[in-house]
Amino acid sequence: MSTSVSVVKGARGLGSSFRGGWGTTSLMGGDEQLLMQSLSAPNRVQVPARPVRPRPMMKNVNEGKGLFAPIVVVTRNIVGKKRFNQLRGKAIALHSQVITEFCKSIGADAKQRQGLIRLAKKNGERLGFLA
């Protein structure tokens, strides 16, 4: 198998015409030969398989936990999920407003207010209000 490369200098500048395969030729040195071989053959790199993680479940992790969880679950079943979530959202909004007003009255900044709201959420989870 032969490879011929010709360089033509014309009015348009330098151009090249390549005929043949990617076989080795005596015109190339060791480094060029390795480069040409690496370009011709696809690199097969072994990538370690990523560990398979279980998909997160869209389930309330607080279901059945806390002092008020049974009352919350029964109320949700009686009222219905949609109406219950609307009422819960209103209650959470009112509670956040109370916390905001409290922070204004004592002169707490926004960062402290945000921390108190997070604390209220954690306490609500522990008590079972978010079941």
Rank of each mutant, 00 (worst) to 15 (best):
L130E: 06
G21Y: 06
V7K: 04
R55D: 11
G23K: 12
R88A: 08
K111W: 09
N85P: 00
F129V: 02
A110S: 10
I106Y: 00
R53F: 04
L130N: 02
G23A: 09
S38W: 11
A91R: 06
K65M: 10
D31N: 13
L39H: 03
D109L: 00
E63P: 00
G64P: 00
I71M: 15
N77Y: 10
D109I: 04
L14G: 09
S2A: 09
M1P: 07
G30Q: 15
S38A: 00
G29W: 07
A49M: 11
T24V: 13
K9T: 15
S6Q: 11
S4D: 15
M58N: 14
E125C: 03
P42F: 01
K65G: 10
V5W: 15
A69R: 00
F102W: 09
Q97V: 06
G80W: 07
K121T: 05
H95V: 08
P42E: 10
G124Q: 13
T24I: 12
P42D: 08
I99Y: 09
Q46W: 04
I78E: 05
A120L: 04
R83Q: 04
L94F: 08
K104R: 14
S26W: 15
M1D: 13
G30Y: 11
R88Q: 14
I117S: 03
G21H: 02
G15L: 06
L87A: 01
V72T: 01
K65E: 11
P51V: 08
Q114V: 13
L35K: 05
M57D: 14
V52C: 02
I106F: 00
D109A: 05
G128P: 00
L67R: 14
M57C: 14
S6K: 08
N60R: 00
V79N: 01
V74H: 07
G80I: 01
S4R: 10
K121I: 09
P51C: 07
S26Y: 11
N60W: 00
C103V: 07
F84M: 02
I71G: 10
S6W: 07
S2I: 03
V45D: 05
N60V: 06
Q112K: 12
D109E: 02
G115Q: 05
V74F: 08
P56E: 07
R113T: 12
R19Y: 02
G80S: 01
K81H: 08
L87T: 04
G23I: 00
T100N: 02
G64V: 13
K59L: 09
A108D: 09
Q46H: 09
K59Q: 13
S40Y: 10
G15T: 14
W22H: 11
P42G: 07
V73A: 15
V7T: 01
